[in-house]
Simulated scan of single mutants.
Amino acid sequence: MPAKRSKTVTVAAPAAAHNPGVALRALRRQRGWTLAEIGARTGLPISTLSKIENGKMSLSFDKLTRIAQGLEVDIGELFSSQAPAGNDAFGGRRSITRAGEGYTIRTEHYDHLYPASELLNKRLVPIIVELHARRLDEFGELIRHTGEEFALVLEGAIELHTELYAPARLEAGDSIYFDSTMGHAYLAAAPGRCRVLAVCSGGEAHLREAMARQDLLRGARTRREDA
């Protein structure tokens, strides 16, 4: 992705407890870690972490995933107002996400809305994606992660690029199921709004790692272009 602007994260959350900066400070203090120790774990400067904790810096997806990995927590814990309660030990759990709820990651080239964000360690990860990138050079490196993926076009049209097949154009109502270890990218392929419901089986940790790798590669490429 050749973008020179940093991607920002906007979180739709009704209370300060859902703020990733607040969660970062609480988890850090709970574990008795300093900002320097968090910096060593995440690769982020102390000044950046301090600004995040104090709500003075917008989060890029790269920073968000680095923090989750450094703290060794599910990414949902950075947006949850409740501590994890061993959800996998209980049967019959459920989550209802009303229109406009969930947490949203808004970037220059896509928006991700995560329903059921309060459920940790989900076996299936649903994501509603609104696409802005229309070319592969905008999107950047192909994404790949463990598991399989189902995508249903909700609005507009998309073009799915993969490393093994020719690009596939899908219109509203069309769907595709594929092996998500295969590199892939969703691009907007029609004027106006293009939205997809993607359901991934790889688990949030794997998706988090895949997106983090993609952002790191983008950042490295941007630094080379700026040099």
Score class of each variant (00 low, 15 high):
54 N>R: 12
135 R>K: 14
94 R>M: 07
116 A>M: 05
111 D>M: 08
117 S>D: 10
102 G>D: 12
132 H>R: 15
67 I>F: 11
132 H>A: 15
70 G>M: 07
121 N>C: 06
72 E>V: 06
94 R>T: 00
69 Q>E: 14
93 R>P: 00
78 L>F: 12
120 L>A: 05
96 I>L: 15
117 S>W: 09
114 Y>V: 10
92 G>L: 00
118 E>R: 07
46 I>H: 04
43 G>K: 09
50 S>I: 06
100 G>I: 08
115 P>D: 06
107 T>K: 05
133 A>I: 10
112 H>T: 08
84 P>V: 02
110 Y>P: 03
120 L>R: 09
58 S>K: 14
104 T>C: 14
126 P>V: 10
129 V>C: 07
77 E>L: 13
55 G>A: 04
109 H>R: 13
43 G>R: 09
53 E>W: 10
58 S>W: 08
131 L>K: 05
111 D>C: 03
82 Q>P: 02
103 Y>A: 01
117 S>F: 15
82 Q>D: 06
103 Y>V: 07
85 A>Q: 09
72 E>P: 01
49 L>D: 02
62 D>C: 03
101 E>Q: 11
110 Y>M: 13
117 S>G: 05
47 S>T: 15
73 V>C: 03
93 R>I: 00
104 T>Q: 12
113 L>Y: 04
58 S>V: 13
128 I>F: 11
130 E>I: 09
57 M>E: 08
105 I>C: 10
92 G>R: 00
128 I>E: 14
77 E>C: 08
68 A>Y: 03
107 T>W: 04
83 A>G: 07
128 I>N: 07
96 I>S: 01
133 A>Y: 05
109 H>L: 13
105 I>W: 12
114 Y>N: 05
54 N>C: 06
63 K>L: 09
90 F>Q: 02
91 G>E: 01
106 R>W: 10
132 H>G: 14
97 T>D: 09
49 L>R: 01
132 H>W: 11
75 I>W: 01
105 I>H: 13
90 F>P: 00
52 I>W: 02
133 A>T: 12
111 D>F: 10
127 I>T: 09
48 T>L: 10
80 S>K: 03
82 Q>C: 03
88 D>N: 01
130 E>M: 05
45 P>N: 14
51 K>I: 06
113 L>S: 05
95 S>A: 15
73 V>P: 02
116 A>D: 13
97 T>Y: 08
95 S>R: 04
56 K>T: 03
87 N>G: 11
107 T>I: 05
107 T>P: 02
91 G>N: 02
124 L>R: 04
116 A>Y: 11
109 H>E: 13
134 R>Y: 07
104 T>H: 15
64 L>T: 13
46 I>Y: 04
75 I>H: 01
64 L>H: 08
71 L>E: 01
86 G>L: 05
47 S>R: 11
89 A>F: 00
59 L>K: 07
106 R>I: 08
74 D>L: 07
64 L>S: 10
127 I>V: 15
79 F>G: 04
101 E>L: 02
122 K>W: 05
98 R>C: 10
62 D>S: 07
57 M>S: 04
60 S>Q: 08
77 E>V: 08
74 D>M: 12
123 R>L: 12
75 I>L: 13
89 A>Q: 01
58 S>P: 15
71 L>I: 09
49 L>G: 02
75 I>Y: 00
101 E>Y: 06
90 F>G: 00
123 R>Q: 15
126 P>S: 07
61 F>L: 14
62 D>L: 14
77 E>Y: 07
121 N>K: 12
119 L>Y: 03
88 D>I: 00
122 K>Y: 04
